[in-house]
């Protein structure tokens, strides 16, 4: 019996995607601690390995050797299934993200829709985990997660619709190919399509911060108010998988922003396009996300909702109308 080469290719990509997600989760924690340290005039982890580079390994071993306690009174099935429900959609979204010209597991024609479809399942996992833990802090956190996600999904999707109107396709590979050339061809500077494109990028980025529950929008796991929010009751690797899912979502958000606005794997000067440019842009965005977390304090819940409903949604609607008018006129 011989296996089809496509099957082998998909298997290799699947293993690669899971390794990429796990490695990113581990080393983004290291980056986060290091960056937080330097921002606060400390040096961050340094004892384990050179520059503390083996710290994530030690953390992983610690998490994995901890006993998986299922507290009395929780809903055992939902409690166990919730971390998986956060992790699996993230892995599914990686399938269609093109990191290079040929570096994509499956180039789906409606890849953009696929990413947003699976991103919406993430909330369900958090909600079930929070309810399953039967913990007051977790339930408060779940209520915040839902109202926050509902509020921020709207401006994000409107911005994406605007972009799809400009590109005319939801195929991520084609969207990147349209931004060939130099940085002046990237969608963020596509002022001919809509003069508000840089603003659209800003809206997308803010919504991404809120969608991934990152500071200043980390109301869901506000550790000074809610212990750890939805993760309060989770021990060991249950917590670890939640965290991996969270960092995987940050990577996905940064990747989508790179593809939609920053030209994916295209070089800013039209030279040597390749996966290195993609990773450079993606990690720069992730660096900014962490930078923002350690610079700004947490907002209050009402100002978070006000920002979305009174500022982001009207501006993104205006951008949508402006873009459609520009497309119609020119």
């Amino acid at each position: 019996m011989s296996l089809h080469p496509e099957v082998i290719r998909l298997l290799i990509f699947l293993v690669g995607i899971i390794a990429f997600a796990a490695l990113n989760a581990a080393y983004l924690v290291w980056l986060e601690r290091k960056e937080a340290g330097h921002i606060q005039r400390r040096i961050g982890p340094k004892e384990v390995g050179p520059f503390g580079l083996l710290q994530p390994l030690a953390d992983g071993i610690k998490l994995m050797t901890k006993q998986l306690i299922v507290p009395a009174g929780v809903d055992p099935i939902l409690f166990k299934i919730a971390p998986i429900l956060v992790m699996v959609p993230a892995i599914m979204s990686f399938v269609t993200i093109p990191y290079g010209e040929n570096l994509v597991a499956r180039n789906i024609d409606i890849g953009l829709l696929m990413i947003f479809a699976f991103a919406s399942v993430n909330v369900l996992g958090l909600l079930l985990g929070a309810w399953g833990s039967r913990n007051k802090y977790a339930v408060i956190s779940a209520a915040r997660v839902v109202s926050q996600n509902v509020a921020y999904e709207i401006p994000m999707l409107i911005t994406v619709v605007t972009l799809v109107m400009i590109t005319g396709t939801m195929n991520l590979h084609e969207i990147v190919m349209q931004q060939q050339g130099g940085f002046w061809n990237w969608n963020i500077l596509n002022l001919a399509a809509s003069p508000l494109m840089p603003v659209a990028f800003l809206i997308f980025f803010v919504c991404m911060l809120a969608e991934t529950n990152r500071a200043p929008f980390d109301m869901a796991e506000a550790e000074s108010e809610l212990i750890a929010g939805a993760f309060t009751e989770y021990p060991g690797m249950g917590f670890g998988v939640f965290f991996m899912g969270e960092y995987a979502n940050i990577v996905i958000g940064a990747s989508v922003a790179t593809i939609l606005f920053l030209g994916g794997w295209q070089c800013p000067f039209g030279l040597f396009p390749g996966v290195h440019w993609f990773l450079l842009k993606m990690y720069f965005l992730i660096f900014t996300v962490i930078w923002i977390r350690w610079t700004y304090p947490r907002t209050t819940f009402y100002s978070l909702l006000n920002l979305s409903w009174k500022i982001l949604i009207p501006i993104s609607f205006f951008n949508l109308i402006l873009t459609s008018a520009m497309i119609k006129v020119f």
């Binding site: 789906i108 024609d109 409606i110 829709l113 696929m114 947003f116 479809a117 699976f118 991103a119 919406s120 399942v121 909330v123 369900l124 909600l127 079930l128 309810w131 339930v139 779940a142 209520a143 839902v146």
Partner: peptide
């Protein structure tokens, strides 16, 4: 029909189930 499949996930799983759980929780 990948489009219908993804819409099914986006609307029914991502929106309707989340809304129902939220309502039940409240």
């Amino acid at each position: 029909s990948p489009f219908v499949a993804l819409m099914q996930i986006l609307i029914y799983v991502g929106a309707i189930c989340v809304t129902i759980i939220f309502a039940v929780m409240l």
